[in-house]
């Protein structure tokens, strides 16, 4: 067993975990934060994507102990209170989800993608960068639309802030 300490969605958390505990299981089982999902066992599907120190990672491919000392943001911590994050809002507006199972990972991955491309995104880039996220329901059409729309909104927001 090891002690882990991390900041999750702004709250400092400590816990004791088996060494083999994955970050995703720590979040889901120890913290009861079930918004982060598990869709595979080979790090392919991306249902488990969270932000670790500001970067998108698959929380199934990192141990909880490795994340100790880091700052983690999950889907539960993305909105600003009751104000949806622009990516969340765009997924709803553009019907970028059906069953919702891939959605938390999609939204976390998309947010990171948009952050990494302040110059803006095009369809080809979005599709290429979604390589690590599988959705079985939407055919990606509306996910791509949502991400492009969110990217526009966020770059406008950034321009205004500057």
């Amino acid at each position: 067993m090891s002690e882990v300490k991390m900041v999750v969605n702004g709250r400092t958390i400590t816990g004791n975990v088996e060494d083999r505990t994955l970050l995703v299981h720590f979040l889901r089982e120890n913290l009861g934060m079930t918004g982060t999902h598990v869709g595979c066992d080979t790090s392919q599907c991306g249902a488990c994507v969270v932000h670790l120190d500001g970067k998108a990672v698959k929380s199934c491919s990192i141990l909880a102990v490795q994340a100790s000392g880091s700052e983690v943001v999950t889907i539960e911590g993305l909105a600003d209170g009751s104000d949806l994050h622009p990516v969340q809002a765009a997924f709803r507006e553009h019907h970028g989800l059906q069953c919702g199972f891939c959605t938390p990972g999609m939204i976390m991955a998309a947010t990171d993608m948009i952050n990494r491309h302040p110059e803006g995104l095009d369809e080809k880039t979005v599709r290429a960068e979604l390589e690590g996220n599988i959705c079985r329901c939407t055919g990606y059409h509306n996910i791509v639309k949502a991400i492009l729309a969110a990217s526009e909104v966020m770059s406008k927001g950034a321009a205004k802030a500057a």
């Binding site: 079930t34 918004g35 889907i75 909105a79 969340q88 709803r92 989800l97 919702g100 959605t103 938390p104």
Partner: peptide, 21 residues
């Protein structure tokens, strides 16, 4: 109409069997 159920799914509040305790 945008979907009523989306609010919970996009905020991580969906409830699937594995989320049940």
């Amino acid at each position: 109409v945008v979907r009523k159920e989306d609010k919970r799914f996009i905020t991580g509040a969906g409830r699937y069997v594995d989320d049940m305790v």
